[in-house]
Structures are given as C-alpha cells and as structure tokens.
C-alpha cells in the first residue's frame, strides 16, 4: 500500500487521532491515501466512522514497522 501521508498518532488519546486526520487529510489530493498510526484503541472504530460521516473511503488496517496499528483512508474529495 502506497501511503501519501502518514500521521504519527502514537500515544494520543481519543479523539486526538481523528482530529489529526480531520485537520490534515486535505493535504493529500483525491485518490491518495492517508495512514493514521494510533495506539489508542478507539481509533479502530472512529477512523471508519469518520470516513462514513465525511464521505471518505476506509481501506482497512495494517501495522506500522513497530507493530502499532495503522488505519488507511483513501481521500475521495474534500469533506
């Protein structure tokens, strides 16, 4: 998976990872992929929920090199 922007949200508590995503996803042009690397367990539910509410595409999760979950979002259009 080619990631255009990776947001390091390790150690951040909810809702900070989603706030970071909301602030910065528009830096990536439509079609690009933003990755949220988050230790907070709520991100597993809230990144997909953010995608649904903001009309973006949730691609699923993989893991960063250090094993921390990484949630992938394809940017459709400015939400």
């Amino acid at each position: 998976m080619t990631v255009d922007l990776e947001l390091d949200c390790r150690g951040m508590l909810c809702p900070l990872p989603v706030i970071e995503l909301g602030r910065r996803y528009a830096e990536v042009p439509p079609g690009g992929v933003v990755a949220v690397v988050a230790t907070d367990v709520a991100a597993r539910h809230d990144v997909p929920a953010w995608c649904r509410m903001r009309g973006q595409e949730y691609l699923g999760e993989d893991t960063a090199a250090d094993g921390v979950p990484r949630y992938l979002v394809r940017v459709s259009a400015p939400g």
Partner: peptide, 16 residues
C-alpha cells in the same frame, strides 16, 4: 478507558 462496546458494535463514532 475502553470505548463503548455498544457504539463500537454498531459502527458508530465512539468519541464525543
């Protein structure tokens, strides 16, 4: 410090 199981199971936003 776990999000609500109910909200998570529904796919709802768990924060706020």
């Amino acid at each position: 410090l776990e999000p609500s199981r109910v909200l998570a199971a529904m796919g709802a936003l768990t924060h706020g």
